[in-house]
Design a protein around this nucleic acid. Structure first.
Lengths: 339, 339
DNA sequence: GTTACCAATGCAAACATTTGCGGCAAGGTT
DNA sequence: AACCTTGCCGCAAATGTTTGCATTGGTAAC
């Protein structure tokens, strides 16, 4: 029946002051052992639990981290989120997850909500077009650390001078690794699928891949296609394989695109790797759904999340720490889709 | 420089009392129009935003909903979570997401955390073995609505009398639909893959499927296997197809199992539906990765989430509402994997 | 016998807001 | 003139903690 035990009730029962009770429960050295014992006994007896809302108000800390993504149901994001939740919790933080759904307005609203709720830090994967730094500045003023992950704002001439905290896969390195892998197998006719052209991740990967391929002396035909979803990838590959193009290797920069590509390949009854080689950048789930396993360059949401959370802890302790872009190196996971 | 605008500061500037300012911002009828105007002007000028922590403490409402799942990165859960977040937000609520990772202890800790944070309601998908009702009772006492979804506690003899709020797919109906579909195609040698035997969802689906199949007069060989993950499903199907069994249809009760089964099928170079028919219960992503598309019975996390959130809103308004189990009917989505 | 110090505890402000109740004028009614 | 509205506003309590600064009583040092 002790519906809401408070410090006050304990204090009254024991003829102590609220402050003494508070300190006793926290093992404050000022309080005598006997008092501590009595307080703790009564506390457990009446099932006392501190009211976190009051604690938060007093300390101005919520022990909650905000996490904003365009969409939760996305191969990469959900592995990141799952890992981030686990990491955060092990450090006493909870995760408040919000979706922006590719809408920049909604993204700002989400940021505002995080600020209103006094979250202790924010992880943000920006929606495609975002480029507005106004609100980021407000957060900085409010002392709320903001870490970009995976998708970061495009750094063009206008904002190149505003440094940010970020944690990303080493996209350039991944794409170069992909290109050198292609060269190693001496492929001549490559179809490369990239995502939304407006995303920095797309631009970086594309440039690096192109550069890597063109470095080769021999002649390689490289066809590049931009597909924003699985369906488009399916169509592009279907057309390419039925036409005179006949690529000998298909490269997909993401799981979504790989899914579309594979469906076309199955439909056309092309054999991997006999008829066609496949290479992808992936977080490692989708490639294992097929036989042979698709060779891929791993971008681990799990590892990235660990990095992000530990960086966040640093920033919470030292809010003035200098902006830093952290890159997580990629590695090649060999399947059987290359020959 | 208005680092933290408060009601107090506005009040001081305007020589008003805090309460008047508070009411003015809320359009309270007691306040004159001129005062309201002045207050609102200054409020926007100095960028006032109410401190939600204080509001929460005062009103004892956090406007946050807790959502606890065994794991976020799971085909079904992430679609549910994504939809729930969207629905909740449209009603002014945010989602605090926690993972229990198949650990009953962790599940209780998560529930406790939700209680401490004074969430306004909790969605819970239980981990396998959970059967303890002690804490649920505490939540009821604290007036925090608890809605089970997808995975609900097993209702055995001991707790059959404790009603709960729940929102689930119509599992029995889905399985019966699966069975009648199998019968329609006159299959004789069926391999059926089910998940963790301890889950209610598994038990219900298995019983209904078995019953549906055995209703048939003609002789059907039904082999049932329990697999707790993709890997196990892969192995079971591999063994079965290479042995003398040679099933003519494989039924998978979940996406995870389907993924494993399909990998074996590809590896063995079996043609669907010529060599083998496939039927699954799925939320609709995985079946579309293959060609032909796998025929499946749809369990929509999105629809379920909508139901769950609207039910939660009812419970928040009427906490004493009677316990009710809501079932969402399933439908057959025809692909090309049956013949 | 004053001073000093220590351990143990209490006071009260602060966090920012909401809200019941009461005050106080101005104007209208008996 | 006494009374009652009514419109506008402020007081103060309440939400549950945390924490800097007293306050006590006791004991040891000088």
């Amino acid at each position: 029946m002790s519906r809401n035990a408070t410090l006050k009730k304990i204090a009254e029962q024991l003829n102590l002051s609220i402050s003494t009770v508070s300190r006793a429960l926290k093992n404050h050295p000022d309080i005598s052992e006997t008092t501590k014992r009595k307080v703790k006994e009564l506390a457990t007896l009446i099932d006392y639990e501190p009211n976190l809302l009051a604690v938060q108000l007093r300390t101005q800390k919520s022990h909650i981290l905000g996490l904003i993504v365009p969409s939760i149901s996305n191969m990469f994001n959900d592995s990141f989120i799952a890992a981030a939740e686990k990491e955060a919790r092990s450090r006493g933080y909870s995760l408040l997850i919000l979706q922006s759904g590719e809408d920049p307005v909604c993204e700002v609203e989400n940021l505002k909500l995080c600020k209103l709720l006094r979250v202790d830090g924010i992880f943000l994967s920006v929606v495609s077009e975002t480029r507005c730094f106004d609100f980021y500045e407000k957060l900085r003023e409010a002392g709320i650390p903001l870490i970009f992950f995976d998708r970061i704002p495009i750094q063009d001439n206008y904002n190149a001078f505003r440094p940010i905290h970020s944690v990303c896969m080493a996209d350039e390195e991944s794409a170069i690794l992909a290109a050198t892998t292609v060269l190693k197998y001496k492929k001549k006719n490559v179809l490369a699928l990239f995502g939304n052209e407006k995303l920095s991740i797309t631009q970086i990967r594309k440039h690096a891949f192109e550069k890597g391929i063109k470095k080769n002396k021999e002649k390689i035909t490289l066809t590049i296609a931009h597909c924003t979803n699985t369906e488009e990838a399916y169509n592009v590959v279907f057309q390419a394989c039925r036409s005179f193009q006949n690529p000998d290797l298909i490269f997909c920069m993401s799981d979504e695109l790989l899914m579309g590509a594979m469906k076309s390949i199955q439909q056309l009854q092309l054999k991997i790797p006999e008829d066609l080689s496949v290479l992808a950048i992936s977080n490692g789930i989708i490639p294992h759904l097929f036989h042979p396993v698709i060779t891929y360059i791993e971008t681990s949401g799990v590892e990235l999340a660990k990095l992000a959370v530990s960086r966040m802890m640093e920033l919470i302790e030292h809010p003035q720490a200098e902006e830093k872009s952290i890159l997580l190196p990629a590695r090649l996971v060999a399947g059987g889709s290359l020959r």
